[in-house]
């Protein structure tokens, strides 16, 4: 195949302890470390491996959001993507908006495969891949833990509640990836230098001809109710007594 698109979302780093802003308008992001959504790194790694096996010509990383996401796209280029597209938007977009934007880029690039993370660790929506596949009218293979391509077909093993499910899809299509698909590579310094020369195009939503619609309104953010620290017991006998006391054993 010619082209694989990979989505890279800029999110609050996995290791940051997230705090809700006191006015309830969102979470604190000032001075907070931002990174590529971890699932998206796995998506990119898979695309790069497909290309390295000679099964694709070009890997394009795409981000939709604020211009700071260029940092994450540059990291993607350093990992090995061939070029990057940033769809600049300061507005808060819904997953359906983002799916429509990705569909416009799929059309523009004639991409045959889109690989995405199964969810972003900020909104935890887990919707983009499914929505893109729906409006594209193409197959979706979500929560992938193994991907094998053969011609214009992909055999995908999916992590589902019951275990591991395998489906076969015709390409073009969308794959969303789970944690155990692969181990993303580390970026080396010479690759970071090389990545600076790779193309990074900026597009606006208007240029793509996508209309952004008002969707679900975010009313307010609040901290979760905390569990309180309980009691410590000294030994197994104490534990059994405490469990019996609560009527649990």
């Amino acid at each position: 195949m010619q082209k694989i698109l990979v989505g890279l979302k800029r999110v609050v780093d996995y290791n940051v302890r997230v705090r809700v802003k006191s006015d309830g308008s969102g979470v604190e992001t000032d001075g907070v470390k931002m990174s590529i959504n971890p699932f998206d790194e796995i998506a990119l790694e898979e695309a790069l491996r497909i290309k390295e096996r000679g099964e694709a010509e070009e890997v394009i990383v795409v981000s939709v959001g604020a211009s700071e996401a260029q940092q994450q796209l540059r990291t993607g280029l350093a990992m090995g993507a061939d070029r990057a597209i940033l769809v600049d938007s300061q507005e808060s977009l819904t997953p359906l908006d983002v799916a429509r934007i990705f569909k416009a880029i799929v059309d523009r690039e004639s991409a045959e495969l889109v690989i995405l993370g199964k969810q972003a660790i900020d909104g935890d929506n887990s919707q983009l891949g499914q929505m893109l596949a729906a409006i594209w009218g193409r197959p979706q293979a979500t929560f992938a833990s193994k991907v094998e391509l053969a011609g214009n077909k992909a055999s995908v093993t999916r992590e589902v509640d019951a275990g591991l499910e395998t489906i076969e899809i015709d390409l073009p299509g969308v794959i969303s990836v789970d944690l155990r698909l692969n181990e993303p590579r580390y970026v080396k310094l010479p690759d970071i230098m090389k990545a600076k020369k790779k193309p990074l195009d900026q597009l606006s939503i208007e240029e793509l001809g996508v209309e952004v619609a008002a969707g679900i309104k975010e009313v307010t953010y609040e901290p979760p109710s905390e569990r309180e620290r309980g009691v410590m017991v000294d030994d197994v006998a104490g534990l059994v007594a405490a469990l019996k006391d609560k009527g649990l054993v």
Binding site: P95, L96, A99, Q130, M131, A133, A134, Q140, G215, I216
Partner: peptide, 21 residues
């Protein structure tokens, strides 16, 4: 569940609406 997470966004997008997770 993985069943619903896989299915419902596809339903929503076909209906032209967003989905609440």
């Amino acid at each position: 569940t993985t069943f619903g997470k896989d299915l419902m966004p596809r339903v929503a997008a076909l209906l032209g609406v967003n989905q609440i997770s």
